[in-house]
Nucleic acid binder design. Structure first.
Length: 919
RNA sequence: GGGCGCUUAGCUCAGUUGGUUAGAGCGCUUCGUUUACACCGAAGAAGUCAGGGGUUCGAGUCCCUUAGCGCCCA
């Protein structure tokens, strides 16, 4: 059978889709131990992740690429470790975001508003929109290689999940943990809905501070002519229009300036309404004028003060932040327009003192950025105290662990200061609040749609207009996606889930709410580990934004460099909880890495193909007689790598693990072992062993790397497996799975004791080879020139003699012109000397220049080099002698001290030899 | 106001029980097309690990402190 030709460079374009289809159609993304199947074994450990559901109509951005890469890595690792692995995919209906998108589209294409269309029709249209675009994001996630079980895909508005939402709401209601009432909430005038505290962002902005007079009404004691005295309290405000809603003026009880006014009556400018002057310790005597206007309907602090003093609460803005009937003649004006006009009128009335620029924090909507208006509004709330306590304890007592740990503190701080959660939104797209009202205004709250009022039996029921905050349903995600409230096989086996992986920016929004919901509804923690990743920024650490034009589109990046390159870039060099800077240069470098793997693979496969059929060799698995130094070295380094990678995975140090695998493959395996193998394979008796080592090491590399770069590793591994199975060493692959995705992840082994000395020996060979190559570079000796060399290697003589062929091959020496001599012998004339330090001594190398060189240039250059090396040796000797003369010798571990002693000897010997060469 | 993070080579960043001469990618210099790879190879230059103090035989790593930058909460 003819061997297939592998292309010169790795072609991810022809690979990724094909490989993904093989995985998906082959059922590899499904848990191998499925609780819905008859052969289910409850003793097999599951590993479960619920995907952070992206907005159903969203488009893939770099943040998605980040979490998909990390979660797929976690999943693939555990799958290869033998866990029954389930990654539940899905998407979020994303109330506001989706509704806005559809509204915008309707306006653009049909010039129709949602109000004109009506609620029912609008929701229909939104479902159509969802059907049309809902698959886009999940297909884009597939391109990244995500190994989700797509048959278990969920959507927050699905029937099942809607039932979960209903169940959750009713349970909370029945426990008295949900209530409805007028409260001061954050109102978004543009969206015309309430938003939660978390959805408000505060930014420092330049504003004006307006100073004006709050005139004091004559109390009849002064005997003046008019109702107004000339007395006033100066007050400062950022938002003068809220004067229309003032219900008091507050001063500090100890404030000497204003004490006399306490209990008297002030007159609201223009409106003429009478309001009391009150005393409250909340008022800061230092800030502004030291007196505070109280607008309980539009300010959270004022609201609190009003409650303490039993003040009336006036709303003076309507839903679009226009002044309402309480604003007198300003009714109908926009809040900013009213600000201007009222101020002008006050100025005319002589009530204005001054205005000055002022830096203040402005509350803005997280979505859209418009200024949020605190307003009194009838909303639904969740009593958070008991939920929060449970959520706090779960992390405090270690049932849930957060990676990195420092976020636990952030979590505690937030959980200890929770406020009731406003869960109603004045939107149409979402889970409608399952509360019905009869004409008597009795509330009926049930799991099934009611036909009559639970109180009076009236059949005239209307459902509450509001929908639930999107986060209410996503808070149920880890269990609602598994079938809850039903005790489905999936729910029983896969819940609680394992890791929750997401960005730290939604720790409060989502993670905290899942914990509270999970504990409340299922009585269990929803996951035992939270892994938080950072934000992805551009290569200079700036936030990506369309206006800045520095957005990296993962789809384009994948088109240009492949999904593996993007994944590897995101995974390596990022650390948990820290933001990551990503530039295309890095992606390009990792594309090159994929190509490197491809080409190493080609080399290994060619080597396998070149084997001639022969009887099967004996003694698989363990290190045997036939192992060369290079074989032992690469094997020992590989085992060390496996141990390191295992440790890094346990510690969530994925980036570090990826980096080490990269370094091993490129710097150890490709740069050195493959080159050594070329030399070894020229000996017929070493050939088989060499190919076996190439094969086994490369196989393990691909397995280690697979969670990072699944496509290239799967593709190459497939070729590798095919080549092995058709070769004399087919037994190496006899128990391999058909695809790498379910192959066993390498298990770490304890060192056997021989490793360190083999590594040291090989490293000496590397040093010698480097030294000779360096000499070539310095002397301008062509790499083609075969050199004659004399070694003076002392106790390392036997080692070098053993490795002559390999050294000769790696540094192009003339095997027939290599010789050894004792160090004490007279050094060879006209040879260029070099000294390489070993662990405990040194090796001298004398290279015979191939032709007559310009000695004046080259000798001085050589001398310069030797002198520099001597200087290094001398300073190291000094350093080490100091070190060994200090307390270090007594207190440091003996092995470490010995190591430093050896090193000192090495430098001493090296220095001596260099000196003799310089003479 | 409280809390957290960052500051390591020209650029972007790794560096987790404290222990070789502090690493990588990109960039830079020189050389090179030897049957895996020019998406490559070889050799090389480049860092007082932000400043100061402390603990320790030993600190980029632990503690304190100062400064700059960034984020979160109020």
């Amino acid at each position: 059978m003819t061997k297939q030709e592998l292309s010169k460079a790795y072609d991810f374009k022809s690979t990724e889709q094909r490989i993904y289809a093989m995985w998906e159609t082959g059922g590899y993304f499904k848990p191998h131990n499925d609780p819905n199947k008859p052969d289910f074994d409850p003793n097999v450990k599951p590993f479960t992740i619920s995907i952070p559901p992206p907005n159903v109509t969203g488009e893939l951005h770099i943040g998605h690429a980040m979490f998909v890469s990390i979660e797929d890595l976690m999943i693939r690792y555990h799958r290869m470790k033998g866990f029954s692995t389930l990654w539940v995919p899905g998407s979020d209906h994303a109330g506001i975001a989706t509704q806005l998108m559809v509204e915008r589209d309707l306006l653009k294409t049909e010039e129709i508003t949602r109000e004109e269309l009506g609620r029912e029709k609008f929701i229909e249209r939104t479902w159509e929109w969802k059907k049309k675009y809902g698959g886009m994001i999940t297909n884009q996630i597939r391109r990244l290689g995500a190994s989700c079980d797509w048959d278990r895909e969920r959507f927050t508005l699905d029937e099942g999940l809607s039932r979960a939402v209903r169940e959750a709401f009713v349970r909370l209601y029945e426990k008295g943990l949900i209530y409805r009432g007028p409260r001061l909430i954050n109102w978004s005038p543009g969206l015309k809905t309430a938003v939660s505290d978390l959805e408000v962002e505060y930014s420092e902005e330049n504003a004006n501070l307006y100073y004006f007079k709050y005139m004091i009404k004559d109390d009849g004691k002064g005997g003046s002519r008019s109702a107004l005295t000339e007395e006033f309290i100066p007050v400062a405000t950022i938002r003068p229009e809220t004067i229309l809603g003032d219900t008091a003026v507050a001063v500090h009880p100890e404030d000497e300036r204003y004490k006399k006014f306490i209990g008297r009556t002030a007159i609201v400018p223009i409106l003429g309404r009478e309001i009391p002057v009150i005393a409250d310790e909340y008022v800061s005597m230092e800030f502004g004028t030291g007196a505070l206007k109280i607008t309980p309907g539009h300010d959270a602090n004022d609201y609190a003060i009003a409650h303490r003093h039993n003040l009336p609460i006036i709303s003076m803005l309507d839903q679009s932040a226009k002044v309402n009937e309480n604003g007198g003649k300003y009714q109908g004006q926009d809040r900013f327009e009213a600000r201007k006009n009222l101020w002008a009128e006050m100025k005319a009335a002589g009530l204005v003192i001054k205005e000055e620029p002022y830096l203040t924090t402005i509350p803005r909507s997280q979505r859209g950025g418009e200024i949020i208006e605190p307003m009194i509004s009838e909303q639904w709330f969740v009593k958070i105290e008991s939920l929060g306590k449970a959520g706090l304890d779960a992390v405090k007592d270690g049932r849930i662990k957060i990676v990195p740990e420092r976020f636990e503190k952030v979590y505690f701080n937030w959980m200890e200061n929770l406020k009731d959660w406003c869960i109603s939104r004045q939107l149409w797209w979402g889970h409608r609040i399952p509360v019905w009202y009869c004409p008597e205004n009795h509330m009926t709250v049930t799991r099934e749609d009611p036909t009559q009022c639970a109180t009076c039996g009236s059949q005239e029921l209307t459902q509450d207009d509001d929908v639930l905050d999107t986060w209410f349903s996503s808070g149920l995600w880890p269990f609602s996606t598994l079938g809850w409230p039903d005790e489905t096989p999936d729910y029983k086996y896969f819940y609680p889930t394992s890791y929750m992986e997401t960005g730290y920016d939604i720790l409060f929004f989502w993670v905290a709410r899942m914990i509270m919901s999970g504990l409340e509804y299922t009585g269990e923690i929803p996951f035992h580990t939270i892994y938080l990743h950072g934000l992805v920024r551009d290569e200079h650490g700036h936030k990506m934004s369309k206006t800045k034009g520095n957005v990296i589109d993962p789809l384009i990046v994948m088109d240009d460099f492949g999904a593996d390159a993007l994944r590897f870039t995101l995974l390596v060099g990022s650390t948990p909880g820290n933001d990551t800077n990503v530039g295309l240069k890095k992606v390009e470098a990792n594309r090159n890495f994929a190509n490197k793997i491809w080409n190493v693979g080609k080399f290994v496969i060619n080597a396998i193909d070149s084997l001639t059929p022969s009887p099967l060799p004996e003694g698989e698995g363990q290190r045997g007689e036939g192992w060369s130094l290079a074989d032992s070295w690469i094997w020992a380094k590989l085992q060390r790598l496996i141990r390191d990678v295992e440790r890094q995975f346990q510690n969530f140090q994925y980036g570090q693990a990826g980096q080490q695998i990269y370094d091993f493959i490129w710097s150890d395996f490709a740069d050195w072992y493959v080159e050594a193998a070329k030399s070894q394979m020229q000996n017929e008796e070493q050939r088989l062993q060499t190919v076996k080592t190439l094969t086994r090491v490369f196989d393990i590399c691909l397995r280690l790397l697979h969670p990072f770069t699944p496509f290239i590793t799967e593709e190459v591994w497939g070729h590798l497996r095919g080549a092995i199975l058709e070769s004399p060493i087919s037994n190496l692959a006899k128990d391999w799975s058909p695809m790498l995705i379910t192959a066993k992840f390498p298990e770490p082994r304890e060192p056997e004791g021989w490793e360190e000395s083999k590594i040291a020996d090989f490293e000496l060979i590397q040093e010698i080879v480097r030294s000779i190559r360096n000499l070539r570079a310095e002397k301008n000796i062509s790499p083609k020139e075969r050199l004659a060399v004399i070694f003076s290697a002392g106790e390392k003589t036997e080692l070098l003699k053993d490795q002559l062929q390999m050294m000769a091959s790696l540094s192009n020496l003339d095997l027939s012109l290599l010789s050894f001599q004792e160090s004490s012998q007279e050094k060879p004339a006209d040879y260029e000397p070099r000294v390489v330090r070993t662990a405990t001594g040194s090796v001298e190398i004398y290279v015979k220049p191939p032709t007559i060189l310009d000695m004046s240039v080259n000798i001085s250059a050589g001398k310069f080099r030797l002198e520099a090396e001597l200087n290094i040796a001398v300073s190291q000797i000094e350093r080490l002698e100091n070190l060994l003369g200090s307390d270090f010798a007594n207190k440091a571990p003996a092995a470490l001290v010995q190591k430093e002693r050896d090193k000192l000897n090495g430098y001493k010997e090296t220095a001596e030899k260099i000196k003799s060469q310089l003479m």
